[in-house]
């Protein structure tokens, strides 16, 4: 059972518009894999499609993880398999506290079909201890546990709560969708540190970092960098590729791939 994330010739659309036009990508366990690309290249569509967002229709292709074509699974089943999507724009859910939401998420992960939930639920004392420790590590005030999820939170607070969720759920494959957008440098450092701590604790964890800018990659250092353009992966390289893109922009790759005047 491979814990590689393998994407094969993935095509996906919103309505009639095809956004992903044959994505091929493998994210190996224990690696940090960055996907960079200009706006509109399909990066966010890719992360949402992997996770199963209902607005995107997969027209062909496969996404394999741990021995299953996950496109056949419900969204929550994908999460339980170890996938985690850190949202670019986390939604707010009025009336549901951070603590209650997290407990439901943890218990969702622990649930086993056909088993009484009372047998699998996390004991309350252990949950409280866990959430307290994780909040302290991320510099999130404990008062946030009692607030409604993301309701009135700043951009930075929302992203910290995303990382808090990730550290509670301990995914084996995390997808960070433009996690750096809207973050100031201090928040960026805290968030990156949170990701790095998780990676250090789990040598088998894979991370797919989706970003427009190289900046985030100063803090979360990638092993592999792929470049996405017009719905396909068009280049793959090492960390140096990110620096080249930072210097030269995306145009030179566009010319190499699509030729002049295209």
């Amino acid at each position: 059972m491979s814990s590689e994330l393998v994407i094969k010739d993935l095509h996906a659309s919103i309505g009639d518009k095809e956004i992903l036009k044959g994505v091929n990508l493998t994210v190996k366990p224990g690696t940090i894999h960055a996907i960079m690309g200009p706006n509109g290249s399909g990066k966010s569509t890719l992360s949402n499609t992997i996770m199963g967002h209902p607005s995107y229709t997969v027209t062909s292709g496969e996404v394999w993880y741990k021995g299953q074509n996950i496109l056949e699974l419900d969204v929550d089943q994908r999460a339980k398999l170890g996938l985690f999507l850190a949202f670019q724009y986390p939604v707010s859910i009025p009336g549901v506290t951070v603590a209650n939401f997290l407990r439901a998420a943890v218990n969702g992960h622990r649930s086993v079909e056909g088993k009484d939930p009372r047998e699998t639920q996390i004991p309350m004392a252990q949950f409280r201890k866990d959430i307290r420790e994780k909040m302290a590590a991320l510099g999130v005030d404990e008062a946030f546990a009692r607030r409604y999820l993301n309701d009135g939170f700043s951009g930075g607070e929302k992203k910290r709560i995303e990382i808090l969720q990730m550290s509670m759920l301990k995914p084996s494959m995390a997808i960070m969708d433009e996690t750096d957008s809207g973050l100031d440098i201090d928040a960026l450092k805290v968030v990156s540190q949170g990701v790095n701590t998780l990676v250090q604790a789990n040598a088998e964890m894979g991370v797919l970092v989706i970003t427009h800018y190289q900046r985030l990659l100063n803090y979360i250092k990638p092993d592999v960098v792929s470049v996405m353009m017009e719905g396909r992966i068009v280049r793959e390289g090492g960390p140096e590729l990110a620096l080249t893109l930072e210097e030269r922009g995306y145009d030179f790759i566009r010319e190499e791939v699509f030729g002049n005047g295209n």
């Binding site: 929550d76 994908r78 339980k80 549901v96 439901a104 998420a105 992960h109 409604y148």
Partner: peptide
Amino acid sequence: HLFYMQARGISKDEAVHMIVMG
């Protein structure tokens, strides 16, 4: 909202339940 909650491993029924109670 449903997508977000399901992406955290919460089943659809449970997510609807939480949203309504919230």
